[in-house]
């Protein structure tokens, strides 16, 4: 009995489980990359990933989507990431300053803000000023999340003072609370409104008070999958990749 327990402890499966820093790794290191991407990239990167895998048969890309600051924490705590796609430059700069990036990051897309409202716009929101109307439940992202920070900037330039009912942890939860009808309006990216389809509607924010979000991408320092990581980044920046991103509502990189 004792021998069996000990042999279990030193079995390859157990050791492998101990060694795999929290994410799934392919057995062949040269045909795999793990991409940590901002939550607002969820739908576009999933599509982009399939297209990439079709263009490069035999290569697998695994995604981990979360709020950008969460991703930074995960990478800094040793998560096995090969590529990091950020929703802002601040978090990218932080990761670079902390020495986790392999090269300079490259901007691969821009995004801008839009007001998200329920389907059919039941509260007749026409612009940022309407968010402050009595009876309108407005929610946004926490200021630690890029979208939340941009929303604050946008409202400030429009001179609108409004207290949100909630500071959600990412854009997706703002959209889902609008979909569920718990809130009347929120500020998210154009791409999020587009992705949600007919369950919500978007109210444009004029460019004069809008904030253009910049999405940089980088390979993580010391990754054994650097080749695949670079190939993926190149694909994102290629004409095919750009066209795919724009079909999801992103603005071109340049």
């Amino acid at each position: 009995m004792r021998l069996r327990v000990l042999s279990l402890l030193v079995s390859p499966a157990f050791l492998a489980a101990c060694g795999s820093g929290g994410t799934i790794q392919g057995s062949n290191l040269s045909d795999y990359a793990s991409v940590f991407a901002a939550a607002s990239l969820t739908d576009s990167f999933k599509a982009l990933g399939s297209a990439f895998q079709t263009a490069h048969p035999g290569i697998t890309v695994q995604f981990n989507f979360a709020g950008t600051p969460t991703l930074v924490t995960q990478i800094e705590q040793g998560a096995a990431a090969d590529v990091f796609a950020s929703a802002d430059t601040t978090n990218m700069d932080k990761l670079k300053a902390d020495g986790f990036t392999s090269a300079n990051s490259q901007v691969f897309a821009h995004n801008k803000l839009e007001i998200v409202v329920g389907a059919g716009n039941p509260k007749h929101i026409t612009g940022l000023a309407d968010l402050a109307k009595p009876g309108v439940i407005y929610i946004t992202e926490a200021a630690t999340v890029p979208a939340g920070k941009y929303a604050l900037q946008s409202l400030a330039s429009a001179g609108v003072k409004v207290t949100p009912k909630s500071l959600e942890t990412d854009v997706k939860s703002v959209v889902s609370k609008i979909e569920l009808g718990e809130a009347d309006a929120g500020i998210v990216y154009v791409t999020d409104v587009k992705a949600a389809g007919s369950t919500v509607a978007g109210v444009p924010i004029p460019d004069s008070v809008n904030v253009i979000a910049t999405y940089p991408i980088v390979a993580i320092k010391g990754t054994p999958n650097l080749d695949v990581a670079d190939t993926f980044i190149a694909y994102v920046l290629s004409a095919d990749g750009q066209a795919m991103l724009q079909s999801f509502g992103f603005l071109p990189a340049s």
């Binding site: 929610i139 009912k165 500071l167």
Partner: peptide, 13 residues
């Protein structure tokens, strides 16, 4: 809590 009540300092945070 974060799903049902949201997150706002002093009210639901």
């Amino acid at each position: 809590t974060i799903t049902f009540a949201g997150n706002f300092p002093g009210v639901t945070q």
